[in-house]
Design a protein around this nucleic acid. Structure first.
Length: 98
DNA sequence: GACCTGACTCAAC
DNA sequence: AGTTGAGCCAGGT
């Protein structure tokens, strides 16, 4: 695993339960706000892990993608109390800058 | 080391 | 408000 991914996972772990953070926020957390895509890639590889990757969504509020399917991702989010409507997360649940 | 890909984002149509 | 195109980065081939 690359040091970059490590940072990404660490930042993701900091996301409080019941809340979600945007990929941008994570990118900022790792001091690479322009590497949002790379961040997504890292989380994708991570797939099975102790990292709450399901709490990371797109900046528009869309849940984005998920290794095992966005459907499952939404399920996990709702299980934590996050309201999701038609694949979009309520803005108030989004954590702007970690 | 160049090239392609992808869980992104922003601006424009 | 939904879709499209271009710019961005780290990784893998």
């Amino acid at each position: 695993m690359t040091p970059f991914q490590k940072k990404v996972y660490t930042a993701t772990k900091r996301i409080p339960r019941g809340k979600v953070a945007t990929y941008s926020a994570v990118a900022r957390a790792v001091q690479k706000q322009l590497a949002v895509r790379a961040v997504g890639n890292a989380l994708n590889k991570n797939s099975s892990s102790d990292v709450p990757c399901h709490r990371v969504i797109s900046s528009d509020g869309t849940v984005g993608g998920f290794a095992r399917g966005a459907k499952e991702k939404i399920k996990l989010l709702r299980r934590e109390g996050v309201e999701v409507r038609r694949g979009r997360v309520r803005p108030r649940f989004i954590l702007p800058s970690l």
